[in-house]
Amino acid sequence: MCRDCGCSLGPAATRAPFAAQPAGKGHIESIEVITAILDENDRVAAHNRTHFDGHGVLAINLMSSPGSGKTSLLEATIRALAGELKIAVIEGDLATENDAARIRACGVPAIQITTGNACHLDAQMVHDALHDLPLDGIDVLFVENVGNLVCPASFDLGVHRNLTLLSVPEGDDKPAKYPVMFRAADLTLITKVDLLPHIEEFSVARARDSLRHVGFRGDVIELTRRGGPGFDAWLGWLRSEIAARRAAAA
């Protein structure tokens, strides 16, 4: 993907150490800089976005707690759209290939990023994964972030849309507890709504209020991966995003 920018050698080369010298008689100078600390991440993210746009791919980042149903949602989505849309997935986890194996079992390409102890994906990790994932003919690329409601929110991956999942067993006050992530999203999916009759503590109205109070301005879709009107609304959202992207590219 990276013939032009010279990054086709793969992961960023390690830098030579640049150590401090002992304090001397030099003079002290104060330099105003004013740059985003994550400037380099943002640069790589922009590069990823250019790559997605060049292939006409809609890229979507999925963020949530562990166990809120990201991989299950992807499995159900891939099955529902088989023959209609070509999907690829980048999976992020601390360890194991389990999720990528589940996605591959649905018949679509999946790359697993194992982050070791890193709590989030960053633009460089996605970039490196893209070297192993041909995007020709792909309509949608899902990036399933590390299950974590804190850290992934700070790193732009170069995707077009950010989604958060909030599952019913987690409680309706998750947006109030983790405002940065829910605010950053373009769409919130309230998942596992088939459990609502069993978990009376969860109020969809309270969850929606909580989302509004953290500044979330996107749509909220209530669904279960088992199908139904909410799941259809999710597929509808996806189709309309793809149509909008194609119209913009034409």
């Binding site: 304090a23 001397g24 008689k25 030099g26 003079h27 002290i28 100078e29 104060s30 330099i31 105003e32 800089v33 004013i34 740059t35 985003a36 600390i37 994550l38 700070s154």
Partner: peptide, 14 residues
């Protein structure tokens, strides 16, 4: 989340 200012000690006396 910004880097605002860096204070350095330069190599030599000005």
């Amino acid at each position: 989340m910004l880097l605002q200012r860096v204070e350095i000690e330069t190599a030599d006396e000005p």
